[in-house]
Amino acid sequence: MDLEERFREAQDRVKKLPSAPSNDTLLELYALYKQSTIGDVQGARPGMMDFKGRAKFDAWAARKGTPKDKAMESYVALVTRLTGG
């Protein structure tokens, strides 16, 4: 199975987790997904009152410069840890 297939499979597996991961883990999943599918963060940082949007933007921005393949590998590895294999 190639990396793209493992990435898509991980996306399916993460949707079936028995309980929601912590907020930090959700932000990490979000950032890795966006870096994998879009690349470096785009747009302006949300305003101070948009706490959720700002946290998501900052998590994604922290991955700036990470190659898409590396981000996919990290996403798959994180989902594997969350699902226990």
Rank of each mutant, 00 (worst) to 15 (best):
M1I: 14
D2S: 02
D2M: 06
L3F: 09
E5W: 08
F7W: 02
F7D: 03
F7Q: 07
F7N: 00
R8L: 14
E9S: 14
V14F: 02
K15P: 01
L17R: 10
L17G: 12
P18F: 00
S19K: 15
S19V: 15
S19M: 15
A20I: 10
D24I: 10
L27C: 13
L32M: 10
Y33N: 15
Y33F: 15
Y33G: 13
S36R: 12
S36G: 14
S36F: 11
I38V: 15
I38W: 13
V41W: 02
V41Q: 06
Q42E: 15
R45L: 03
P46D: 08
G47N: 10
M49Q: 14
D50N: 05
K52G: 14
R54N: 05
A55P: 09
K56W: 07
K56I: 03
K56D: 03
A59M: 08
A59T: 04
A62P: 08
A62S: 13
K64N: 03
K64L: 02
K64P: 02
G65W: 02
G65P: 07
T66H: 06
S74N: 07
S74F: 04
S74K: 06
V76F: 03
V76Q: 01
A77P: 03
A77L: 04
A77Y: 05
V79T: 01
R81L: 04
T83G: 04
G84F: 04
G84Q: 01
